[in-house]
Structure formats: structure tokens, C-alpha cells
Write a protein that binds this DNA or RNA. Structure first.
Length: 154
DNA sequence: GCCAACGTTGGC
DNA sequence: GCCAACGTTGGC
């Protein structure tokens, strides 16, 4: 999952109540499908900082509740308000995620691109802009290894 | 249903 | 701040 640290950083998630937040505001259909249909409770999350000096994976989170309707689509005061969204059949979804722990070493986009094992990873593909992207089990392991991830709760 | 115009994303 | 990439919009 990509976030711009100016908007909501890894530290913001870490400092949040129960280190948990609802990942809302996604307004892209491909990403919506992932949030609504594919992402399951218990899935691991690579937390990625974009539009920063060194973009890359900074921490590990976990999905603690699978997809549910994103309330901001119904609220005219919200920047993510969608006048076409209907409550009977919500257009946009989000998931609840909880921070597990920071990587010992940030794994930069540059490193991701340089690692042959990650050549197929979504985030290194040209023109890839989705804010939520799939990660395979092998990619997950490799990124944690590169980040010297030492486990949760620190 | 085509496609130009426009808006957004995000690395650089 | 630039601009390539790509999604969306809307006229026709």
C-alpha cells in the first residue's frame, strides 16, 4: 500500500490508536477490486512511502478487517465524496490495517528495481500507479529479507 | 463507441 | 516543479 507521508505516514499509523487505521479514499476501480474482493483479514501489507525523497517500503502492517464500504463516498463534506455512489450498492471500499513493525532498513524503490527476484513485482513495473497493489509470497519474503525485518511489536 | 481533452499520480 | 503514463470524461 502506498501512502504519501505528508498525508498519512508510517509514523502516523504507528501512533494511531491500536496502530490501526481504515484505508479509505481509494478511487480507482482496479484498486477497489483488490480492496473489496481479494484482500483478506490476516494478509500482510508492505507499507510504501511515495512522493518522498527516497520512495520505498518502510514498514510492515497487517489487514485486520477485510473490505467494507468507504463512508467518505457518501459524505458531501469529504474530499473523496462521490455523488454517484449509492448506499445499497457502494462503489468504494477500504480495509482496516494495523502496523506490525518498521523495517530495520528502508527498502528503496531503487533497491526493489535492482533486485532480479523482484523483476515481476507490480510496484517496479513502468507506469504502475495503483495505490494498492498485489504482492506475491515470494516477493514478500524477499522484501522482508532486504529490509532485515526482525518481527512485530518493536 | 471513438478519441481528444483533461486530471491525477508519482518518480525524478 | 516537470512531465510521462494512464485513467476518466464527454462531445460527437
Amino acid at each position: 500500500m502506498k501512502s504519501e507521508p505528508d498525508a498519512f505516514s508510517w509514523q502516523d499509523l504507528w501512533d494511531a490508536p491500536k496502530r490501526t487505521t481504515f484505508w479509505d479514499g481509494v478511487r480507482n476501480y482496479q484498486a477497489r477490486n483488490l480492496l473489496r474482493d481479494d484482500i483478506q483479514e490476516g494478509d500482510g501489507v508492505l507499507y510504501y512511502h511515495s512522493r518522498t525523497k527516497v520512495p520505498g517500503v518502510v514498514g510492515i502492517a497487517q489487514v485486520v478487517q477485510a473490505g467494507s464500504p468507504d463512508p467518505t463516498q457518501f459524505d458531501p463534506k469529504e474530499p473523496y465524496f462521490d455523488p454517484k455512489a449509492r448506499r445499497e450498492e457502494p462503489t468504494w471500499y477500504g480495509v482496516h490495517i494495523q502496523a506490525q513493525g518498521p523495517l530495520d532498513e528502508v527498502v528503496s524503490l531503487e533497491q526493489l528495481k535492482a533486485e532480479p527476484k523482484l523483476a515481476q513485482m507490480a510496484v517496479v513495473q513502468r507506469g504502475q500507479r495503483l495505490s494498492v497493489q498485489p504482492v506475491t509470497a515470494a516477493e514478500w519474503k524477499q522484501v522482508l529479507k532486504m529490509g532485515q525485518y526482525a518481527g512485530a511489536g518493536r
